[in-house]
Nucleic acid binder design. Structure first.
Lengths: 108, 108
DNA sequence: CGTGTAAGGAATTCTGACACG
DNA sequence: CGTGTAAGGAATTCTGACACG
């Protein structure tokens, strides 16, 4: 289904660059992590690394914050999104399972 | 022709991360720049930033170096590659020009 | 030529805390 | 709650140079 694990999700960007890219202060970026909105990796001794996905997510967070949405609410929305996707995946998987059961195994 | 300027070419990776990603020392990476093999951007006060393309190019360079190819030769090959691509683009452009001349202007 | 290293300085990042509201 | 800031330390990056071969 996915062709490249690729660039978009590789955690390689330092917080300083993320700050430039998003216009957020480092303080804000670290705080959103504390509130469980983003999950940077820690490569070398403690340094945070972000992906392009993280940068995009941060921009969305910034937009919502400007509208006055609280971090807690943003988190709830994110959880809902994730759940919806997982349900979808689960449905697809089940469907494939039924197809395989009736028509035999097939590559996907 | 291209859909996204996108992730692959954005210069956002610091030299330390590039070093981890490629297995090259920072010294080597800076030297290849000196030899005009790669062209990082300088964002904040002097810090080098690389793209995923740069990382891939560096991996190719590392492979060639292992085979004993000199930086000068690698550069020559790169120039040849670039030239070939430019010629191709020029041909396409000319062709489009002729088509437009005969059949009228068309969006591309 | 290609790479290592010691040198000294400047900029980055980190954490925990106090502040305001 | 969300963000700013001063604090002190640790790690990063930079440049120019000397070294070896």
């Amino acid at each position: 289904m996915k062709d490249e694990p690729s660039y978009k999700n590789r955690k390689v960007i330092t917080i300083g660059v993320v700050s430039e890219l998003t216009g957020l202060t480092e303080r804000q970026i670290r705080y959103y992590e504390e509130r469980k909105l983003i999950f940077p990796e820690r490569l070398a001794r403690g340094n945070r690394k972000y992906s392009f996905s993280d940068v995009e997510k941060l921009i969305e967070i910034a937009n919502k914050r400007e509208e006055g949405v609280r971090t807690y609410e943003i988190r709830q929305e994110m959880i809902k999104e994730t759940k919806k996707e997982n349900d979808k995946k689960a449905r697809n998987k089940m469907l494939r399972g039924q197809i395989n059961a009736r028509f035999g195994i097939q590559k996907d």
